[in-house]
Amino acid sequence: MADIVIKSVAKRFGSHTALHDIDLTIKDQEFMVLLGASGCGKTTLLRIIAGLETLSSGEVSIGGRRVDHLPPRERGIAMVFQNYAVFPHMTVFENIAFGLRMKKVSEADIKDKVTRAATLMHIDPYLERYSAQLSGGQRQRVAVARALAVEPSVLLMDEPLSNLDALLRLEMRAELKGILAESKTTTIYVTHDQVEAMSLADRISVMNGGRIVQAAPATTVYANPADRFVGGFIGNPPMNFLPAKRSGNEAEVAGYRLAAPAGGGSLELGIRPEDMDIAEDGLHGKVRVVEPLGPHKLVSVDVDGHLLRAVLPNEADVKSGAAVALAPRPGTVRWFEAESGKAVATSGVAA
């Protein structure tokens, strides 16, 4: 078992607190993605798990064993870095074998494990080449193969695909998910790329300001964000937000009435750009920009001084400057507290 339990972990750099009492459990063989903008604390948390950074308080356990006092080599982990960290003076074989030799594995076993890891990563034809003779994608495959060859309990990956071009990143992403599922390795993967996170993760931990604001499967994070930050961070384009005036069990948004959660306090409506259709009645506004994007078009609409983005089919008859009404599809509206930004309920459109 290689479950990971992070309990009340905090990290302070002088007067700056980088992590605020993080609690997180990663299940055995789970693929967990730490997602957030630069400076949110995701790499700091990864480095604490790896033993490359000391924590200020809290505990880290792997497989039921507390490890936060242990050096990295005794934690049963392997790590893949953003810059590959492939040794230029070694061949691909020697790079992959490096960790095994450090563990004093026999040469026969080294050959077997290196061959297996290289085959898994589709780099077995290049075992005698040096890193200068490899492409960026091949060097990244070497780095992953080296990590997998030592058969770690936990694999930690820090932005491993960020240096690759878009097409290669897409290919590597698909391969990586299959390879790690096959290896049955518990994986923590750091990225700022939400598409990468959504496509890879069993669960996503969205981080903001040194805190985990939501940890859930990708579909849950997307469809039911825990707060306004998650809704605005996840999605491209992100979720739209419009102020609402509450009246009993209804709310008025730019003159359009919807069913709303009961209670006091000001509300904001949240709606995904792809969850709206042109209708006779809806959120009325004036089209500002129409952007053709191949399979669909992105339409930006001015609704009472607020910008509303909608993803519409190419056949939708909308032109810049025209008046339009956009109706949210039933069940897709989300509500947030205007002051705290926290999600309060899910509701469809009132009949």
Rank of each mutant, 00 (worst) to 15 (best):
M1K: 14
D3T: 02
I4F: 10
I4G: 05
V5L: 14
I6H: 10
I6G: 00
S8H: 14
R12Y: 13
G14W: 13
A18C: 13
H20S: 13
D23C: 12
L24F: 11
L24E: 06
Q29E: 15
V33R: 09
G36Q: 03
K42F: 04
L45T: 08
A50T: 09
E53V: 00
L55M: 14
E59M: 03
E59V: 15
S61P: 01
I62D: 06
R65F: 10
V67G: 01
R75P: 06
R75A: 10
F81L: 08
A85T: 12
V92I: 03
E94H: 07
K113R: 15
V114Q: 03
A117Y: 00
A118M: 03
L120R: 12
M121P: 07
H122K: 15
H122V: 14
D124Q: 13
D124N: 07
Y130C: 02
S131G: 01
G136P: 08
G136I: 06
R139M: 10
R139I: 04
Q140G: 07
V142M: 06
V142G: 00
V142K: 01
V144G: 04
A145N: 10
R146E: 00
L148K: 09
L148R: 13
V154T: 02
L156M: 03
M157H: 05
M157D: 05
A166Y: 08
A166D: 08
L170V: 14
A174C: 05
A174P: 02
E175V: 12
K177H: 07
K177N: 06
E182R: 15
T185R: 02
T185E: 05
I188A: 00
V195C: 06
V195W: 02
A197F: 09
D202Y: 02
I204K: 00
V206R: 07
V206E: 03
A215Q: 09
A216I: 05
T220M: 11
N224P: 00
F229Q: 04
F229C: 04
V230I: 07
F233H: 01
G235D: 01
G235M: 01
M239G: 00
N240Y: 08
A244H: 08
S247V: 14
N249P: 11
E252I: 15
R257Y: 07
G263N: 14
G265Y: 04
G265K: 06
L269V: 13
G270D: 05
G270I: 06
I271W: 09
P273S: 03
P273Y: 10
E274K: 11
D275L: 09
I278K: 10
L283K: 05
V287N: 10
K297W: 00
V303M: 13
A316W: 04
D317Y: 02
K319L: 09
G321M: 02
A322P: 04
L326G: 07
A327D: 13
A327F: 13
G331L: 11
R334H: 13
E337N: 15
E337D: 15
E339N: 14
S340K: 13
G341A: 12
A343Y: 12
V344G: 10
A345R: 14
G348S: 14
V349Q: 05
